[in-house]
Design a protein around this nucleic acid. Sequence first.
DNA 1: CGCCAGATGGGGTCGATTCTCATTTGGAAC
DNA 2: GTTCCAAATGAGAATCGACCCCATCTGGCG
Lengths: 152, 152
Amino acid sequence: MADADVGERFRAFLRDRNLPVTSQRLAIAELLLHAPGHLSADDVAAQLVEKGHTIGLATVYRTIDLLVASGLVLERDFGEGFRRFEPARDMPHHYHLTCTVCGAVSEFHDDRIEEIIRASALARGFVAARHRLLIGGTCRDCRSSSPDRRTL
Amino acid sequence: MADADVGERFRAFLRDRNLPVTSQRLAIAELLLHAPGHLSADDVAAQLVEKGHTIGLATVYRTIDLLVASGLVLERDFGEGFRRFEPARDMPHHYHLTCTVCGAVSEFHDDRIEEIIRASALARGFVAARHRLLIGGTCRDCRSSSPDRRTL
DNA sequence: CGCCAGATGGGGTCGATTCTCATTTGGAAC
DNA sequence: GTTCCAAATGAGAATCGACCCCATCTGGCG
């Protein structure tokens, strides 16, 4: 199944680099690789405490670095002043739509956007290695029943 | 001229809100509204010191908040761990191309990108109010003479 | 089982941003 | 021009995310 797979891929990554497979690393990987949303480092630490682990915040950060380096976890910055992390899914690039009323984040992918961005950068002499697109707006639900409209 | 204009627009904003027009606010606005690039709060404070002012960092932050609220200054986040600010120019939306080798930031605007983003969001039930696009890559100069290639 | 490079974690540091509060000041009223 | 008060200022403390330090512990090879 996919669950054992991602865990195994992290173990393989550690083995490749001759890095010890510790219980802390496995616990953090297990949690973050199966997280549904976008977790902050504190979220990860808090959920570990909930599960009865006592893992130092420093170790959480260090292990997240490993997971990001392995490509199994992606780093996100929503401009909150801290970073969030999410498991890398099959989706190669996905964009984030954030509702400025209810805060809901939804993700999507669009080949046309990616292609046009790449072409536009190239026309200006840049070879685009990566790009990030954040869209803020109001979702369908909040538009139909919006008591207040934020100007944001 | 345009210079007096932006300063006057900030004064008008303060008057509208019954906020005092202080010498510190004017000095910060004068500096930031005519800045060529993207300044951090520290950059602003440092340049004020250079000009002989002694303005507390707290006031710099507070005044920048006002300038952002007034729409005369835009807040940017390039993932450096701190924010940068730039005067809002005529350009309604512009995108940022950052060279991951030399760090150069160049700006551009592309109506096709904007249109396609808006349409793509709408197809998913979102009315896009704003969006941010950051592109990382290597510029022409760094590509022709790149000694090291960052994986970033 | 013993060893040791590397991991761990609690405390300390750092940098950006915001808060606190005593003091000063804009600007409207007199 | 003088008075007055709400609001601004600024120096330092507080906060918060992120990361470093170092004494201690442990994975995993021999």
